[in-house]
């Protein structure tokens, strides 16, 4: 069975969802996908997404996660691939205003969605209040988890404003304003791990930005 080539839909390599190869390595930089006998060819689909305010129309491998779409197809490398299993939160973005793990979200399943990644938080040169608070509180060391922390905190504060309870909210049944204690922030940010252990500064940074 001969090795065949198909035209690539984009200027970047197709994703298998877990490859860390830099662009060009998987296909020798030829701009074409090599089909290997015995391996099923990728299946392509069209998606339309509004990302950080800009419309994008893309033809992608159905296996592409939103995380890989952002990073590998659009060079939006703010959202990070930490675990690729939904456990670390470094890939957190906002999908239609709600925070979500971009690594587990298939792009085809979110066709038509409005996406905001960390690149979309600032208004030009004016940083988002949470970004300012993170700088002020030195709420990071290596910074790898920070884009996910920021997007998660933006979504989390909206959830608090909407009156959503958490596992530590004292009166679950009572509607009304939620007091954003340190315990509430820690519980609500449980899906964002920081291996530098900057939590001691992340928690007050979020508390300040919310005030």
């Amino acid at each position: 069975m001969p090795i065949t080539d198909i035209p690539r839909p984009l200027g970047k390599k197709l994703q298998d969802g877990r490859s860390f190869f830099p662009s060009g390595v998987a296909d020798g930089g030829a701009g074409r996908v090599r089909l290997v006998p015995g391996i099923e060819p990728p299946i392509l689909a069209d998606v339309r997404l509004r990302i950080n305010g800009t419309e994008h129309q893309l033809t992608i491998d159905t296996r592409t996660s939103l995380l890989d779409l952002l990073r590998e197809h659009l060079d939006l490398t703010g959202a990070k691939k930490g675990c690729d299993h939904g456990q670390c939160g470094a890939c957190t973005i906002l999908i239609d205003g709600r925070r979500a793990n971009a690594c587990l979200a298939l792009a085809v399943a979110h066709n038509g969605a409005e996406i905001v990644s960390v690149e979309g938080l600032a208004d030009g040169d004016i940083l988002h209040p949470l970004q300012r608070a993170f700088i002020e509180h030195d709420a990071f060391q290596c910074g790898y988890c920070t884009p996910g922390q920021l997007c998660s905190a933006v979504g989390m504060l909206d959830e608090v404003r909407d009156g959503w309870p958490s596992a530590v909210t004292p009166l679950l049944a009572a509607e009304g304003e939620i007091e954003l204690t340190a315990a509430e922030i820690r519980e609500r940010m449980n899906g964002n791990l920081c291996r530098c252990g900057a939590y001691a500064n992340i928690v007050p940074a979020i508390g300040d930005a919310a005030a």
Binding site: G86, T92, A100, G155, P165, R188, N190, G191
Partner: peptide, 15 residues
Amino acid sequence: AEAVLHGASGQLRNL
């Protein structure tokens, strides 16, 4: 509600 809130993370529960 308690059981759901004791599972996973905010991001995962949104999906």
